[in-house]
C-alpha cells in the first residue's frame, strides 16, 4: 500500500484522520511535510515557499498567543506579528473555541467548529495555526482538509499535527523566527510574494477601525 499523503483538500466530507492512515508524528528536530517525516530545516524552507506562492497567506493565532497569560506568550505574539509583516500575511484570530455560527464574522475571525467558513470567505489558500490547543487544532485541520483547498500548516507547541499538510513541533519564539528568516532568505534570492494586496483588519472594543 502506498503511503498516505496529507495533501490540501477538498478530500471528503469526513476525511480520515491522518494517524489512522499511518502518518506518524515527527521526533524532536524533525517536521512532517504532507505525511513524510523530514528534517526541520527542510520544513522551514518548504513552508516559506508555500507562503510566498500563496495569494491569501494567513496566520491563525490561537488563545495561547493572543492572551497574555505568561511572558512567553507575549514573546511569541511579537514573533508572529514580525512573521506576518515579513510575508506579508493576514492575521485572523481564533480567540476562543466556542461555536459562533451563525454570528461569526468570517472575514475577521476563525472558529474551530466551522473553520471552513473563514477559509471560504477570504479565499485563503495557505494558512498556519500557532497557539491553538491541540484538540481544537486537530478538529479545525480536518474540517479544512475535508472541505477546502487550503494548504494547512501547524506550529505546534507539543508533538505536531498529522492532520496538517505540514507540521512543526515544540513551537518556540526561535522556531517562529526561523520561519521568518527562511521567508526573508527566499525573498533575498528573488522569490516574490504572490499575495494579493490587503488591509489588515484592526479592532477595538467599539468595533472595527480598519
Amino acid at each position: 500500500m502506498s503511503q498516505y499523503q496529507v495533501k490540501a483538500g477538498p478530500e471528503a466530507f469526513l476525511p480520515p484522520a491522518a494517524a489512522s492512515m499511518g502518518v506518524i508524528l515527527p521526533d524532536p528536530g524533525e517536521c512532517h511535510i504532507e505525511g513524510r517525516i523530514a528534517p526541520e530545516e527542510e520544513g522551514y524552507e518548504y513552508a516559506a515557499r508555500k507562503f510566498l506562492e500563496a495569494k491569501v497567506p494567513t496566520i491563525f493565532p490561537g488563545p495561547l498567543v493572543l492572551w497574555n497569560w505568561n511572558e512567553n506568550a507575549t514573546k511569541k505574539a511579537k514573533a508572529i506579528r514580525a512573521l506576518a509583516d515579513a510575508l506579508p500575511a493576514r492575521l485572523i484570530p481564533m480567540a476562543d473555541y466556542r461555536p459562533k455560527y451563525p454570528k461569526i464574522d468570517a472575514e475577521a475571525e476563525i472558529n474551530p467548529n466551522h473553520p471552513n467558513l473563514t477559509i471560504w470567505h477570504n479565499k485563503i489558500d495557505v494558512c498556519i495555526f500557532v497557539g491553538v490547543h491541540c484538540h481544537q487544532a486537530n478538529l479545525a485541520l480536518k474540517i479544512i482538509r475535508g472541505g477546502t483547498d487550503c494548504f494547512t500548516m501547524a506550529m505546534c507547541a507539543q508533538a505536531g499535527h498529522e492532520d496538517a499538510c505540514l507540521s512543526f513541533r515544540d513551537a518556540s519564539v526561535e522556531k517562529i523566527t526561523k520561519l521568518m528568516d527562511a521567508v526573508n532568505k527566499l525573498k533575498k534570492e528573488g522569490v516574490k510574494s504572490q499575495a494579493e494586496s490587503f488591509v489588515q483588519i484592526k479592532m477595538t472594543s467599539s468595533g472595527r477601525v480598519a
Binding site: 507575549t74 484570530p93 484592526k202 479592532m203 477595538t204
Partner: peptide
C-alpha cells in the same frame, strides 16, 4: 502585539 486583531 496582537490585541488589535481581536474582535470587540
Amino acid at each position: 502585539e496582537l490585541a488589535d486583531i481581536m474582535p470587540p
